[in-house]
Design a protein around this nucleic acid. Structure first.
Lengths: 145, 145
DNA sequence: ATAACACCTAAACATAAGTTTAGGTCAAGC
DNA sequence: GCTTGACCTAAACTTATGTTTAGGTGTTAT
């Protein structure tokens, strides 16, 4: 059993964020001792799930919806499955998008490394595609595809 | 040369978002005809860059900072390089994080597929690690690592 | 010529996800 | 016995990123 401060540290979250999740009903029935929250393993797993779904881009109110389905029991299994299937597609697309973003950033790193060496970006800005290193051209093309 | 409506469609952005970027100074000196904005190739490339850096997780004010450096000229080449190097590290970490998120989601897809088949998640919830399919266990472990 | 569109501005409004503030309890250490 | 530190609540506040509203202009189709 952990206090709110310990859990905050564990997850690198603020105490106020944890209280906010609790207030919003994401953490159902956190135990109390003299009014002080005591988080158990189940709460920790819930917070882990919340953090994961947040990273997936889900909003708090949709995460709450999911957690409410969990509480509702077996009648909502299909809804939960459908939610994860949707999220899977979305996250796969996000990773693909991020890969393109990364390629543009890598291209720009090369661009500015070259420009810094030259003291100006005149030359690299006007460089023809056939004069670029092959792997750099590939990054650029992929990022714009 | 494109009107604001055409550009909005091109990038799947709202017209008001484009006006907001202009107002915030991200698009320097967009041409006007009778007060109506006419976006040229340079503006399009800027908007492409804005969209990319937004996806990378940068805030509008930091994107503006970068665009201001571009306007300032060659004295800021090193700052721009440093910015992209930092972003590269961040985006690489984001992709790694998203991969873990995806693994947890894939695990949960398996979990709920199994639960839906059984009509209950009792069995899958209590399943021992050695009874899980190897690739599912791998997903689970990676997502929690 | 009048209606329908696409555009314009300034300013108010919206929303999510917390954070901050103001006031309070309780246990531990000096 | 007093201070410090970790916890508590309710309610106000913050911030980013736009969106909406209200009022207006100019062109095109009927």
């Amino acid at each position: 059993m952990w206090t709110i401060g310990e859990v905050a540290q564990k997850f690198n979250l603020s105490i106020s964020a944890l209280r906010y999740y609790d207030k919003e009903g994401l953490l159902s029935d956190v135990k109390r001792e003299n009014g002080i929250r005591k988080f158990d393993d189940k709460d920790i797993e819930t917070i882990f799930m919340i953090e994961c779904l947040k990273k997936a881009g889900m909003q708090i109110k949709d995460i709450k919806q999911f957690l409410d389905w969990v509480k509702e029991g077996n009648t909502t299994l299909d809804k939960r499955l459908k939610m994860f299937e949707n999220q899977k597609v979305k996250v796969e697309k996000q990773i693909q998008d991020m890969q393109k973003v990364l390629d543009l950033i890598k291209y720009k790193c090369w661009y500015y490394e070259t420009a810094v060496k030259d003291g100006s970006d005149e030359k690299v800005k006007n460089m023809k595609e056939e004069d670029m290193p092959a792997e750099i051209l590939k990054l650029y093309k992929n990022s714009h595809s």
